[in-house]
Nucleic acid binder design. Sequence first.
RNA 1: GGCCCCGUAGCUCAGUUGGAUAGAGCACCAGAUUCCUAAUCUGGGGGUCACAGGUUCGAAUCCUGUCGGGGUCACCA
Length: 604
Amino acid sequence: MTPHRICDSRGQQFSGVSMDVFIGFHGHVLAAVQQLKRDGVVPQDASVDGISLTAPKDPTHGDLATNAAMVLAKPAKMAPRKLAERIVPLIASDPGIEKVEIAGPGFINLTLARAFWPSVLRMVLEQGDAYGRSAIGKGQAVNIEYVSANPTGPMHVGHCRGAVFGDALANLLAFAGYDVSREYYVNDAGAQVDVLARSAFLRYREALGEDIGDIPEGLYPGDYLKPVGEQLAANHKSSLLELTEEQWLPMVRATALKAMLGMIEEDLARLDIRHDVFFSELSLTEGGQDQVADTIAELRAKGLIYEGSLPPPKGKIDEEWEDREQLLFRATEFGDDQDRALVKSDGSYTYFASDIAYHRDKFRRSFKSMIDVWGADHSGHIKRMKSALAALTDNEADLDVKVCQLVRLFRSGEPVKMSKRAGTFVTLRDVVEEVGAGPVRFMMLYRKNDAPLDFDFAKVTEQSRDNPVFYVQYAHARACSVLKNVAERLPDLNLEGDKLAQADLDLLKDDAEIALIRRIAQFPRIVEGAAQAHEPHRLGFYLYDLSGDFHGLWNRGKDLPQLRFIYENDRELTRARIALVDVTKRVVALGLGILGVHAMHELH
RNA sequence: GGCCCCGUAGCUCAGUUGGAUAGAGCACCAGAUUCCUAAUCUGGGGGUCACAGGUUCGAAUCCUGUCGGGGUCACCA
């Protein structure tokens, strides 16, 4: 593929397929391999799956490198470098490729024609906000379940990371061409919501004028239940007092649940998080049906359910532990270290039992691909959940459980102490109000999900290079600033819309300029890689690097005025550089958009 | 004791799913520095990728074992 074909193809070549600017060259390498197969140099059945085409870290290795010769050396029974010599002439003829070299153990390094890089810019300008979008998802439906915090109170910081992670991952997958459904599993069936109801009932009595004293041990003490009590008092006057707990509890519970969910939705909205579906656990067993029982029956039919007793828990001695026969799922058949209980001693279903039914329901809603975002304390449950789902769906469903490790809060290096009992835990709302949604989101994503994360209130608002939030936002703001300045200083320079794409981009020759373009060209690959690995943090690190290249280029203009973006002595060159600035700005904004962070036009 | 995660520069962490001489930021050292509204900038030193085996053309990455740190371990959610 030549550079010209790349920039001339408007809808066709890039609609529906990867916008990776290197994809054409990859095809080229594969075509060369096909030729060698026809020539009998490489056996027909040799796999080409391992052949990659990547941008090497070291620029002296060219723009692109392929391992094709090394991968095929064994099936072809040839030394890698010998085989490389056969491949080289087959790709060297492409006019888009300036130089082909064999290096190291058998890498084939391609140096692209200098004119290729400006063509990348032109393409990005034409693609606009579609740049980097991918079709690898093929419209496949993906269900991503995240947050799912118990509806018994406001969200605290602990929920924050999973919430942001799940939301950004959902954005990312949507950007990569998946059909994403965002789901919240509402645990409205367990004992904790009865506790919620009793706590609300106490507040109801308080609202009626009764002195309730201290909140008893075992009930939720938070003030956030006072409005619920007042609402109950307004709706029912004192009538609930006449009823038995059995009678009032369902009513009070429903009112309290609705209030709690409303509060949680508000908290999430502060972080720009909105779910498509709130799935009620209670709904699994309501309305004359019992999906949990159905689920257990299905598993029983597969011979995976039995009555038995479990060995006592190891590690700590639990006084209340009693040996009893219970209904168990054969998780050990799937590599779990124990079979798992489905029914509690009081006869109700365990959380696990409901959760299986819930995942079965997702599958029945035709989601074959599911992602769950869990806190680290639930990691021990992954195996049993996967086991149960595999059993129920005959391995047709794919479940990826992403575990978010703990967030440790700091204030200028000092750990923030939190105690639920003392009521000193930091809520999600506190954090967002103090530092803003954007910084919270970015910091929560600037780490691998399975590594612990330190969150320092002072750090996220610091204006320096070691605060990535600021550094990336600053790149965007700086680009905006340059665009604004050029419009003022050179008002007759036509920079509107697609005029920018007509700038003579070949004038961009400086190494720092090319380096920035190379980074921009990586964007679609980063998106695809992050989407496939379910790792949004890669995007955050990419944006930091991209911002570094951009700031670096700006800094060079300090010493060398001829390298400044706005160079009044050369209007055409300025136009070309403005195109580069504009594209950089767009890519930063696109990347931030996927992370769910609003790109700022000015910083103060 | 079982299972899961982690172990990379003095510190905090990346590492394109197995690629070439392992990279950033902070800190440290040496220079430069009043600016296209904006974080000062440039360069430098610093590593047995916890350890030992294995897999192969090639391992920080995959497998096994050891050591160290964290989480979790009937019924709760």
